[in-house]
Amino acid sequence: MTSVTVWNEYRHERDSDVVAEIYPDGIHTVIADALESAGFDTRTATLDEPDHGLTEDVLESTDVLTWWGHAAHEEVREEIVDRVHERVLEGMGLLVLHSGHYSKIFKRLMGTSCSLKWREAAETERLWVVEPSHPIADGIEEYIEIDDAEMYGERFDIPAPDTLVFNSWFEGGEVFRSGCCYRRGNGRVFYFRPGHETYPVYHNEDIQQVLVNGVRWAAPGEGPEPTFGNYEPREEIDLSDDRTVH
């Protein structure tokens, strides 16, 4: 069974009555419940727990980590970012959600500022499926319409995705690359844009289906372990050449 750790900053839900009304037990519990209902072994972790809930043991036993943060990116300790980064390179999947684009871990994996345009106007978003054969789009119609959304607009300062699954159009006229797939080391990374805290986006069944699909796609496979470093030849060759500085 795929093991998922749902990480959430968990600040807005405790500081804002508006957010608490939508997510009384936190954004992480709504996401975790949806993933658990899909058959994943799911647990949660939050910023204010020891090691932000991401101990070495937790990460070692995590197949896919989901990440939601907004107001406290700078409070995430560098050693925890190092720990998550290492696990992604080893093969752990990572789903970065909404304002997690500014998280330390996503910026490190992308190597860019990950900046964008934004606007809060509770406007309509139409999330178009641009790669319908991709497994993350399984069970989704041609588009998902979100009645109230925060606008994110291009330019989104990220590397070109390996695969772009979703592209958003907003009522105000902007567009945005909203479903971006990457490989980093042995790990798979999926950035998914919807999820502003003052709108009930994660209660949307289509959005939950995308998260379920994203976890399935990002989960590590059963392929061979790669080998690195100095390597003995598989065939018999002359090893007498000594022109080396190593």
Rank of each mutant, 00 (worst) to 15 (best):
M1Y: 13
T2G: 13
E9H: 03
R11S: 01
H12R: 12
E13D: 11
E13C: 10
V18A: 12
V18T: 14
E21I: 15
Y23A: 04
P24H: 09
D25Y: 05
G26P: 00
V30P: 09
V30K: 00
V30H: 00
D33R: 05
A34M: 01
L35H: 00
G39T: 08
F40R: 01
T44N: 01
A45T: 12
T46E: 07
L47T: 00
D51T: 12
D51A: 15
H52S: 00
L54R: 08
E56D: 07
D57H: 09
E60F: 03
S61Y: 06
S61N: 12
D63L: 15
L65F: 09
G69K: 06
H70R: 05
V76R: 03
R77G: 15
R77C: 15
E79Q: 14
E79I: 13
I80E: 02
V84E: 00
E86K: 07
V88Y: 01
V88Q: 00
V88I: 05
L95H: 01
H98Q: 01
H98V: 01
G100M: 04
H101G: 08
K104F: 03
K104R: 12
I105F: 06
F106E: 04
K107Q: 11
M110V: 14
G111E: 10
L116H: 07
K117W: 01
K117T: 13
E120N: 14
A121H: 09
A122V: 11
A122R: 03
T124R: 15
E125V: 14
R126P: 08
E131G: 09
E131A: 06
P132S: 07
S133L: 07
S133I: 09
S133G: 06
H134G: 03
I136N: 02
I136W: 02
E141I: 05
E142H: 06
D147S: 10
A149P: 12
E150T: 10
E150G: 07
Y152S: 10
E154S: 07
E154I: 01
R155L: 15
P161D: 04
D162T: 05
L164I: 15
F166Y: 14
N167Q: 12
S168N: 07
G173P: 13
E174Y: 13
E174P: 15
V175F: 11
F176K: 02
F176C: 07
S178E: 09
C180D: 05
G185M: 03
N186R: 05
R188S: 08
R188V: 10
R193P: 10
R193M: 12
G195T: 02
G195W: 02
E197Q: 03
P200L: 09
P200T: 08
Y202I: 05
N213Q: 04
G214W: 00
V215Q: 00
A218T: 10
P220G: 12
G221Q: 11
G221T: 10
P224R: 08
F228G: 08
G229R: 12
Y231Q: 15
Y231E: 14
P233L: 06
P233W: 14
R243Y: 13
T244A: 11
V245K: 06
